[in-house]
Nucleic acid binder design. Structure first.
Lengths: 200, 200
DNA sequence: CATGGCTGACTGAGCGCTCACTCCGGGTTG
DNA sequence: CAACCCGGAGTGAGCGCTCAGTCAGCCATG
């Protein structure tokens, strides 16, 4: 019609399948999910899955890849948001935490279902994860160099800060007393204490 | 002979099956593990599993229950180790983290395979987890009351500190550059910063 | 009437668990 | 003390079922 903005019927089905797979994998895990769980939720026959996707594993890969790319982009953007390492860290942690809380279903898949990927897909995702890790380590290392953070090893702090966000995927639910944004603010403060950010 | 110290033949097999199940569940998840993976690793026929255990799920429950009970006992003992909340927190986090690193396989099962439990078993484990959470929140709350920790809400800090330890189950491997004890020391320091422990 | 999204019916593989059976150590009996 | 029996650990074979994936054809659209 107007532009390519109108999603074609086929793209809509494809998208519904991905959404249904995301919810199912998040709730029951990859191996605990049957292809029929996905197609029933998407309102299609069991065969329709294979019209749009090569396999159940491909769905997992697509979800995992998109999730990792989102996180990597968030890290990179957060670092450009300011020249001050303190502000960089605050922004990155806030966004990272809020995103993991808001999309805790997708985060569960991203972080806990990697072992179910095919070897080549696993390798591709692993390299994305590595880039995410390095991004945070570099941010902290530059803060140490600028005397904004007062710790000897950026890697320990990076592990800890990532763990704060990732573990949300395990325990956060939509009815938690803090909203994703609020939790992001709180955890950003914790992160600044973890790196011993200096006041000035 | 001497006492009942000598493990009976039957107890030994039962134990081998549990060990094999622990490793298999940790590596591939509950749903990703076949009963034959377990029995092959334990060196028995596939039928022998059912001589000693009611079902595959029972194995999961036994592993999960033992793991949670160990953690709860650790929390309780750590609190009795000193009158100073700072020392209590240091001890608890050190032990908790070192244990999760050392037994990261078991920790994986304990923390990530709960959804595969039968409903009654799930409820039993959930109540154990609740007691663990409360133990740590109480510790921190008493530290706040004694003006040893300078934060408004013990629950946020407790969530964060638990996440540090639990997330180890996901990423720690035996060839990590820090030994479990060393990591425990490092993370105990982070925990003290998270609760803003006062120097005096 | 050609294209392609979509389906109902189907299949081969593999899974948890069972069952009829064997083997063996130790107590009981004549 | 030999002969017998019994209970329980352990097994080989396989049953009943589930599941990911396939395929021939239907039907709406352009």
């Amino acid at each position: 019609m107007t532009a390519g903005a109108e999603p074609s019927r086929t793209e809509a089905t494809r998208h519904r399948l991905l959404e249904a797979a995301t919810q199912a994998f998040a709730e029951r895990g990859f191996h605990g999910t049957k292809t029929r769980d996905i197609t029933n939720a998407a309102g299609t026959s069991s065969a329709a899955l294979y019209v749009h996707h090569k396999s159940k594993e491909e769905l997992l890969f697509l979800i995992s890849k998109a999730g990792h790319e989102t996180t990597l982009a968030m890290m990179q953007q957060g670092r450009q948001a300011s020249d001050d390492p303190r502000e960089q860290l605050r922004t990155v942690v806030k966004d990272f935490v809020a995103d993991h809380a808001r999309n805790h279903g997708r985060a569960r898949i991203v972080n806990y279902e990697m072992a179910a990927l095919d070897p080549e897909h696993f390798d591709e995702i692993t390299s994305l994860r590595h880039r995410i890790d390095v991004e945070l380590i570099d941010l902290i290392a530059s803060g140490i160099k600028a005397k904004a953070f007062d710790i000897p090893d950026p890697r320990i702090a990076a592990s800890a800060i990532l763990s704060l966000g990732i573990d949300l995927a395990r325990w956060f639910t939509d009815d938690f007393r803090l909203a994703p944004d609020e939790l992001g603010e709180e955890y950003a403060e914790l992160a600044l204490r973890i790196v011993r950010a200096r006041a000035d």
